[in-house]
Design a protein around this nucleic acid. Structure first.
Length: 290
DNA sequence: CTTACGGCCTGGGTGC
DNA sequence: TGCACCCAGGCCGTAA
């Protein structure tokens, strides 16, 4: 499941291979996850890649303008759950579910593989790029503690839902949300507004520590995530709760639980992460039968 | 406006 | 062996 650390790892790998390269040709397999497949065929061949960026969980390939009149554009890639971008030799064996092939002028090839095709690819021009990116919240690694606390502490939704909301913070997914909340000792069902200054401070630090450490370990390979060089990440070895239901909490030895919070499988320690008082819906209590 | 929730996309894994 | 079903994560529409 590519989240911020995995996408960052892929972006770094692509940054080592792509800037300065020109795309020679485009070949597509299934294309229902591509917003406008003909736009790829139209715009990419002959164009030179200027840079590679990550924005939240999005990968951006920025293309050079060939002349003053031409408009600049970017290729926006969201890896979804099982998306994967690799740069390899054209004779390398083709992984199943590979649907995009971009031939490069150095003889190599960019390939996009996506088992479930929950990923998305689109071409965005100058204007639509800013429109698309401005929908997203702050990068947790760029936000100040004040900004982080302000964004999360002012909302009445569950903290798990807020951390996952890409309009609040960009880049967090299920793994790093559960891991951060465990490290900050905050229950996923707590409401943003219920968090004390001290808890928000712990959460800020936890989120940043987890993300930075995960980037150092090249991300988590839980199912089939591989980076741009086709290597697995290693951060799954450092997971403290994610997919550890029934095992012992690393901190207190209690049994890690799994529950559905914000519609997501959620892993937490019931001992270290104290549940908020049960909220009962006002006006929905059944009268006792007489 | 804010929040909660169900459904959709697809295919691998599981269990009968 | 085959097959029905569950589930993953992001996102969108709808309801309260």
């Amino acid at each position: 499941m590519p989240e911020l650390p995995e996408v960052e790892t892929v972006a770094r790998g692509l940054r080592a291979a792509l800037p300065g390269r020109r795309i020679v040709s485009v070949r597509l397999g299934k294309m229902d996850f591509i917003e406008d497949p003909s736009a790829l065929q139209h715009h990419l061949p002959g164009r030179r890649i200027e840079g590679v960026r990550r924005h939240g969980k999005f990968l951006l390939l920025d293309f050079e303008r060939p002349d003053q009149k031409a408009r600049s554009f970017s290729m926006l890639i969201h890896l979804g759950m099982t998306g994967n971008v690799v740069v390899c030799a054209p004779e390398a064996p083709i992984a199943p579910h590979t649907h995009v092939f971009l031939a490069l002028d150095d003889g190599r090839e960019v390939r996009y593989t996506d088992i479930r095709r929950f990923g998305r690819i689109r071409i965005v021009s100058d204007g639509s790029r800013e429109a698309a990116l401005s929908q997203l919240g702050v990068d947790p690694l760029e936000a100040s503690e004040q900004e982080f606390a302000q964004r999360l502490g002012s909302r009445r939704a569950r903290i798990k839902a807020l951390l996952l909301d890409q309009r609040v913070l960009r880049g967090m997914g299920n793994i790093y949300t559960d891991e951060s909340l465990w490290r900050a000792r905050i229950h996923p069902k707590r409401l943003g507004t219920s968090l004390q200054h001290e808890e928000l401070r712990r959460l800020y630090r936890a989120v940043r520590d987890v993300l930075r450490q995960a980037i150092q370990f090249r991300g988590s390979s839980v199912s089939d995530y591989l980076d741009a060089e086709g290597r697995r990440g290693e951060f799954q070895r450092l997971h403290r709760v994610y997919q550890r239901e029934g095992k012992r909490c690393f901190r207190c030895g209690a049994t890690v639980r799994r529950a559905i919070v914000a519609g997501r499988g959620t892993h937490y320690c019931p001992c270290c992460q104290r549940a908020p008082r049960v909220r009962r819906r006002v006006g929905h209590r059944k009268r006792l039968p007489r």
